[in-house]
Design a protein around this nucleic acid. Sequence first.
DNA 1: AATGAATGAGAATTCATTCAT
DNA 2: AATGAATGAATTCTCATTCAT
Lengths: 207, 207, 207, 207
Amino acid sequence: MSEIALLNAGKREQTKLANRQAILDAARTVFGELGYETATVRDIIRRTGLSVGAFYNYYRSKEEVFAALADDGARRFRPILHAEFLKAVDFESYLRGAIKAYFEFIVAEDQAWAKEEAHLADAAPYARNTPEMMAVHDEVRSAFASVMERGLAPRVDLDYLATACIAIARDVGEEMLKRDPPDAAGAADFCTGLILHGLAGVPRVVR
Amino acid sequence: MSEIALLNAGKREQTKLANRQAILDAARTVFGELGYETATVRDIIRRTGLSVGAFYNYYRSKEEVFAALADDGARRFRPILHAEFLKAVDFESYLRGAIKAYFEFIVAEDQAWAKEEAHLADAAPYARNTPEMMAVHDEVRSAFASVMERGLAPRVDLDYLATACIAIARDVGEEMLKRDPPDAAGAADFCTGLILHGLAGVPRVVR
Amino acid sequence: MSEIALLNAGKREQTKLANRQAILDAARTVFGELGYETATVRDIIRRTGLSVGAFYNYYRSKEEVFAALADDGARRFRPILHAEFLKAVDFESYLRGAIKAYFEFIVAEDQAWAKEEAHLADAAPYARNTPEMMAVHDEVRSAFASVMERGLAPRVDLDYLATACIAIARDVGEEMLKRDPPDAAGAADFCTGLILHGLAGVPRVVR
Amino acid sequence: MSEIALLNAGKREQTKLANRQAILDAARTVFGELGYETATVRDIIRRTGLSVGAFYNYYRSKEEVFAALADDGARRFRPILHAEFLKAVDFESYLRGAIKAYFEFIVAEDQAWAKEEAHLADAAPYARNTPEMMAVHDEVRSAFASVMERGLAPRVDLDYLATACIAIARDVGEEMLKRDPPDAAGAADFCTGLILHGLAGVPRVVR
DNA sequence: AATGAATGAGAATTCATTCAT
DNA sequence: AATGAATGAATTCTCATTCAT
């Protein structure tokens, strides 16, 4: 490698990272819009301006980007989630923190690509469950388990609870993103209230 | 048309209906197992013993069966749901009735094909939302609206509420189906309790 | 199935068989011209006038046609070969019979498609070994073994002998096909003579 | 150009040659293992430690290395072959010498990379004819012609003879390489015996 | 020269849909 | 109507070759 090349290695490496990330971002959008099956590799790379070949330089298969997407989302969200877990003094504070954190996370994500959310409902009315959510499921479940273990929350059916909470967060989160502007705090209040105290705990609207 | 066919015009008509239903049932199973994209028309007709050509005699496209499936599920479930609505004296009774009815409905549906639920998670870990649920969404939303209108429930964000309730019912329902035997009443108690009174309202487990 | 359909079943079945054979024949030609790797499925079906899809109605993969080709060639040649084996009174008569039969076989095959032999050397100078020959290899080897067992031929290195004989038959056979007209008997005499008595046993040419 | 490079112009030239040869050697191995079509340029350069780009500095295309390989093999083998021709007093001695030389040549070549010969049959059961052999064909043919011209061998069909001899040498040679250890002399005796005197001239085995 | 990322034509295969029988 | 072979667009992935650094 020549001296010049050595000096430029940084720039090269930078481009590679940027491309890798660009593909990941495009994949997130496209999978989000069309679902795993319907989305094609061409759909993904079209958004990056790269070539089909380039895609396969970065990911070995369509399946691999999908997995990477889950890893990526989970890797970035998990620490946030865990921080809430550590901060929490009781179940209520954990739940409120976790859900708010999640909604803020997806709003931030959404900003990056957003705009074409219109297509969403239209294109894939039957595909859901983001890779991120899937990856986080176990995290949530065991956080709940731990909280109950410590007597900070009533002992209830853990699988149902985790399932229900994730379902609420996922779908209300998605609903929130459709609003302009999306109100993470409001949505979090709604979900937390519902889970903790049921209908009675949910914020009233005056309208 | 052969002589025999002419003589059996009535039976013919019957067969037509039976075939139409057979395809619909097969489609429900197959879409359930594989998801819309992964499922093929051949997968569907294979279960009916009919031919590919016959499929297109009854439905114009793969998409159309899917839509018909939603209609079918909704058509059969909607009256049940509405009966609960009429029976209900307050929001609580409506909710409990509706959810219990839904869970019993899907348990019954499940019996028909079931068994290969194992494939499910494996085959399409990221595709959900049964056609039935989708079709019922508006129904539920307007039932909630009506209930609130009548002052039987606190005024809250309706879209969030409908979304959350459907999310819970869908996912906890799915979770319930994995258990052996599936306990519709128990799951309904869980969901109703959660929605009405939050965590505190959820049945305890002793374990 | 209607009466008409029943009556036509024969014609249908006939077409299917014809297509299957057409694909096989096209595959033989194309693999012969281009070699397995270079030949594409489209190359094959282009010769049949069918569509890509039709190819996959008859064979599950490119690999499968290749295998079928071997089976086909072997299935048709093996009985001929075996007949020679039974007819033979000594090694010499077996060898002469077998080689002559082989040459006549490939001349006959060649007639069917022929013509584009010109491409051959040009297109794939480095790919050889027809599927047929490969399938027949073991047959030949065990025939040799049997003959030696019975003391009808000297005991020599069997693998070398089978290899050498097949090599000669294959390549001289190919050479013969290039000539116009191909002289199966002459080529067979050459090979038999060479194998049995060496150079001295080979027919002289006057030129 | 860096200072160091300027100082080492001579070494540079040397490196160029070494790289060229390294690529050629790698190509021989890889083509041998996988066949021309299956082998990729990356397969080749991977063995050299060079980069894809470097490959194209030395050879304009995959096809060109293949041709160069033939040239190379031929260039190295031809003198050996010709030496045998000059040494020979009659056809017998020429043939024995040539074949033995060829077998020793390929055994030596094989030593260089060898080991993974197992893959061979597995990877490309239907592709053969080393570039070397192809390049030598004419050489052999004209040597035979010359020998016959001089009355040292009976006049026979020259094309058939050259074809047959090369076929035998190629395939028995390949067979020999599979044995451990490969016995060049034994295989040469076999082939020479067969070609000169036929079956009767082939070494007996006792077993 | 060397490097290795980028390119894009092309390969095998699938599958919704059509259509002759 | 029923049948199932035929169609061909579309999909994933590969790989020779080019090109910016």
